[in-house]
Amino acid sequence: MSVEVRIPTILRTHTGGEKIVKGDGDTLSALFADLDTRHNGLSGRVITGEGALHRFVNVYVNDEDVRFTGGLDTALNDGDSVTILPAVAGG
């Protein structure tokens, strides 16, 4: 299985400038472990040492914020789209 991961500008230093990368994993944490094998340091920018999402990073699976769908345990299916975005102000 394979999912597509959209990388924000600020994290593309870890993907050699690539905007979209492919990855594997049954859950988000498995996906980030897989991504880290090819994109060194990416996982550490998104996930803290305690295994939580960094406060100023939002991750979406098919447009759903994963903080409401099980966090890093969120299940992934073939063809899912994962988007990483920095938190910005609205209003």
Binding site: T9, I10, H54, R55, F56, P86, A87
Partner: peptide, 17 residues
């Protein structure tokens, strides 16, 4: 938004109200 809007210099500049 488009990418420009997320053009922070580092993630610590992120903002949660």
């Amino acid at each position: 938004y488009g990418e420009l809007v997320y053009g922070l210099r580092n993630l610590d500049e992120g903002f949660v109200p």
